[in-house]
Design a binder for these strands. Sequence first.
RNA 1: GCGAAAGUGGCGGAAUUGGUAGACGCGCUGGACUUAGGAUCCAGUGGGAUACACCUGUAGGGGUUCGAGUCCCCUCUUUCGCACCA
Length: 828
Amino acid sequence: MEYPFTRIEKKWQQIWRERRIFNPPDFPDKPKYYVLSMFPYPSGVLHCGHFSNYAISDAISRLKMMEGYAVMQPMGYDAFGMPAENFAIKHNSHPRITTEENIAAMRVQFDFMGFGLDWEREISTCRPEYYKWGQYLFKKLYEKGLVYRKKSWQNWCEECQTVLANEQVENGQCWRCHSEVTQKELEQWYFRITDYAEELLDFSKLIDWPERVILMQKHWIGKSEGTRIEFPLEDGSESIPVFTTRPDTVYGVTFMALPPEHPLVQKWLEEDPDNRELHDFCHKVINEDKLLRAAEDTTKEGVFSGRYCLNPLNGNKVQIWVTNYVLMDYGTGAVMAVPAHDQRDFEFARKYGIPILLVIQNPQQDLVLEQMTEAYVEPGIIANSAPFDGMDSEAAKAAISARIEELGCGQVTSTYRLRDWGISRQRYWGNPIPVIHCPQCGVVLVPDSDLPVLLPDNVQVGKTTSNPLLSVPEWYMTVCPKCGAAAKRETDTMDTFVDSSWYYARYADPKNDKAPFDPAKAKHWLPVDQYIGGIEHACMHLLYARFIGKFMRDLGWLDCDEPFSRLLTQGMVLKDGAKMSKSKGNAVDPGYIIDRFGADTLRVFLLFASPPDKDVEWSDDGVMGAFRFLNRVWRLIEGNLDAIRRGLQLNVKLEEVTPPLRDLLFSTHSTIKKWMDDCQNRMQYNTAIAAVMEHLNHCVAVKDPARLKDSDLAVFAEACGVIPQLIYPFAPHVAEELWQMLGHEKLLHDSGLPACKEEFLQRASVTYVVQVNGKLRGKLEVAPDIDPEELKKLALEVENVKHSLQGWTVKKVIVIPGKMVSIAAGKQ
RNA sequence: GCGAAAGUGGCGGAAUUGGUAGACGCGCUGGACUUAGGAUCCAGUGGGAUACACCUGUAGGGGUUCGAGUCCCCUCUUUCGCACCA
């Protein structure tokens, strides 16, 4: 017989809805707990990965409710973006329509699972009431000088017909469609995330973020400390700033390396239209595949520009080369080349016969220039550097930097690998950038009263090769809000990561039509206490959201430094070792599983299969195992209902409990203890469930419960009676039903945590293991408070121990309280 | 190349501070029961062996320790992130 999961699940979903247990007020009288899962893109289907994510967040949420918190667990849709646009093209429809249809379809699936979500707070980023405030936020950023426009070489995805931010390029491919990313020169809007680089490196306010994610962000931001030095051009007209982490090698500079994109190089190209060599080289390199050009094994190439600059420290003439190995967008976009002490410069200098000058000597073994096959990059003793000779090179870094600052030709500084966030997208289905381009006034922000800039509906989606909004003149043709002249709207839309960089705050006040949210409400609910999502967003969404969170704090809208206190990166759901996907044909339909075994079974399976942060390997048999477990729980309680209900009225009198039930009593309380530790401290639900299974096995083993004497019956009833509480976070529907059957009035979220009573954790006897030289040789059942000396004596008298000690001499006996006696013996 | 994490039965995974390796589940083997089910219950299940005083075993090799899956050194493999960052 299978337990009636369909009836039960429907019933409790309805009761929860009616009692509004998942709809906390704005200012609850209990302490708050904010649980958030990264919102999904509305594809129309929830797959196993979603369910695994939400099963985890729902378990946390229900646990916190039992613990007495007012829990908010909202849900919404990351609805703008390329996939929606492509989906609509494929179905010959409009993204607005397909997106809303998909949202409706997904809502049904959410409901089937019975997740404790507050649907009154639902948001969808593609609705004007939401994106209006994204535009407002853009304006705030602009007003604070954190938005600018710049023409430069962009990561361009031909397939998606749009640019991509650096974070969105993976191994030279688009993060979404995995087609090759090329370079295109475009004028783009940027958010100055680099202004927050230093603060983004401060991870101290994050309580439980995976070390891995912190490390990834740290590397991504890539702070490096060094010195900025100005190298004046020979003619004195201007100077080239460089950034170096090796100021100790300045005297060894023999050439200057510039990328073709460098403004000075661009200027020279204009001045010397006839310099074919330079023109050809620059043209070739700029149009080269960026990935290829950046590859480490790409041959270093360059041409001499024919110009010189001067080393500010000694006045030496320095050749200026245009090369393919310097990046325009890192540091100052120029490198002082020290071939003796930098491998790249070394290779380049050898290839083009540029002089090499040793300025650091290896203290172990003198370097001889002619014999060097690679650069010497280790610290050493300064040489050929006039006043600094003989100094330790590490000390010289500071000394030479100080000298540079004294001379006024540079300063100690830091530079970051992180670039500003390019947020323009040449796509239709996104939030319009609230800007008007006026021929007279230039860039003009759309006044607040005109927000939102509504996305027009009548766009020829997918038919254009250029920005789709350019096909709607009646939309982009407008008048300048300042001077009234004919003007043109910005036709780029915002990166969808802008939408998701502040949504967590909107949930605190999702229907506000006067502001993005009421700061008082947001300050109450934020930060998010537990955030859950995939690790793929480590350097994208999670970095952007931290940045915008800090910005909103600086506006006074929030009072937390970090939007997400705790982060859990959940694993993927795999089948046959590979990520489930429709294209691979290995996807499992969660709908079928729910129909056949119920939502609780699916949840238990997903949570039991592995710890939350590890991948889950799908297994049909595993689902059966979860189903069997819930059936066993059902049969235990339903089959002994009268006895349990009777026993729950009785008190446990310890002295009257018979030994087998004494063990069950211990099991009840040690299980509660382990369960609490696993759920609250370790966030390891697989072992929490395993502990309940083990306890269930003990309960089931009790024979003829109805005939137990009072104290034994009380123990049995308590043992069984606590199980609904223990499975509530994982299988809430069946838990709630059983809890009600046991006669409880309150719902489980309001039942408090099960109590572990220390006095029942005392056992009548303890098993000690006896080891001889690390090998298990016997066991002892003794009183828990046995005298150690007595215990040693007993251990040495164990038959098997005596036998294995024959011909050996005992050297030491070690007692590990409650666990073992270890005997060290030697040959004598 | 650099950085990080990991490697435990036939499988998913336990072992939290160095203390009985393999909890729990799946699968498998044998049995019981049966209004034959995707049922339930009982027993067994790391590998050996001369099968209850044994040996061996956590990728491989060394080391520390009374005791190592856990700590240290070396090697191998896998996964992930970054990748000319000056």
